[in-house]
């Protein structure tokens, strides 16, 4: 018993170290795994529990209605995460813990509402629906995308302009760029000029026409060509190999249209352009038509599932 819990604790200690374990120390971890099947079993149990937590994070919002968990959020501002996890993120990522909180201001939007922000230095930001952007009044050239999506049109000045998102810094080098932060991914798309992602860390420079996706759970950065950055402002979306659940999320954020996809559809990848006008029933019909699915209305929700509408 005592030994089992000791092994479980060792597994945890390793697991906590892995995100920052230097390359040359990995053999020690491998040797620990190999030295006993009890080690491996303990680690696999932990890895599984960890994966459950990781998988639960994005699903908590979607399942919130079913889970009947306490939600402290205004339902008008639905987020991916609700209940306990959202509450703790709000406490942690929120203002109260920042030093000098008084000079900070949070711009928020409800799903379907865009906010245009203009700054004294000439920088303009379009904030997509269901998004939050933190502004520091003592330094207007440092912003933080708390969640959602924003298009930045930055006036290039000697003083650097930075956007923080998901714990990473993006440094502007005279630019128009789009940042989208979800629980799973951080996406950056550059349409003019260039930005530097994670200066001092990954230190990746993205030029006009380039983009990147960071898989937040795995810390994987994939550089790619830019998507139609900021097209959402005019209701034009371009997707490449994007799960339909993310497409539905993009539509919800921009227009507030609530779409639930059947389980079979949500993971299916979608590539193509969608142009939407903001009329819910037309937009849903168009979207469902594009993916060859059927749809029906359920309260203020649209349910899209496999099979043709007639």
């Amino acid at each position: 018993m005592a030994e089992a819990s000791l092994i479980a604790d060792q597994a945890i200690a390793w697991h906590l170290r892995l995100p920052e374990l230097p390359g040359h120390e990995w053999p020690t971890f491998i040797e620990w795994l190999e030295s006993s099947s009890a080690h491996r079993d303990a680690y696999e149990r932990l890895a599984e529990a960890d994966a459950v937590l990781g998988e639960a994070a994005p699903a908590l919002g979607a399942a919130a209605g079913v889970a009947a968990a306490p939600t402290r959020y205004n339902p008008a501002r639905r987020r991916w995460l609700t209940g306990a996890i959202a509450a703790s993120i709000a406490l942690v990522g929120g203002w109260t813990l920042w030093p000098g909180a008084s000079s900070l201001q949070l711009e928020r939007t409800a799903p379907g509402t865009i906010k245009q922000l203009a700054f004294a230095d000439g920088t303009r930001v379009e904030l997509n629906g269901d998004s939050a952007l933190a502004l520091d009044q003592s330094n207007p050239r440092a912003m933080k995308l708390e969640n959602g999506e924003a298009m930045f049109r930055v006036r290039h000045l000697p003083q650097e302009f930075t956007v923080e998102a998901g714990g990473y810094k993006i440094r502007d080098l005279g630019t128009v760029f789009n940042v989208q932060l979800s629980d799973r991914n951080l996406r950056i798309d550059v349409s003019e000029g260039s930005v530097e992602f994670d200066p001092g860390g990954a230190n990746l420079t993205l030029h006009a026409g380039e983009g990147m996706t960071l898989d937040r759970a795995h810390g994987l950065v994939v550089k790619r060509s830019a998507a139609n950055a900021g097209g959402w402002v005019n209701g034009q979306f371009a997707f490449a190999d994007t799960p339909l659940s993310d497409v539905a999320e993009a539509i919800r954020r921009r227009f507030g249209t609530k779409i639930s996809l059947s389980e079979g559809l949500s993971a299916r990848p979608f590539t193509g352009n969608i142009r939407l006008g903001g009329n819910e029933s037309e937009d849903v019909a168009h979207f469902a038509g594009l993916i060859g699915a059927q749809y029906r209305r359920d309260g203020d929700n649209w349910v899209i599932s496999e099979g043709r509408s007639r």
Partner: peptide, 29 residues
Amino acid sequence: ASELARLEALLASMPVHMRQALVLFRVEG
């Protein structure tokens, strides 16, 4: 869904700092 509810309950039962640390570590990386 029921596991999700249990998981939420587990997180809710954790002391605030523990929950915050876990979310920052696992969800925010």
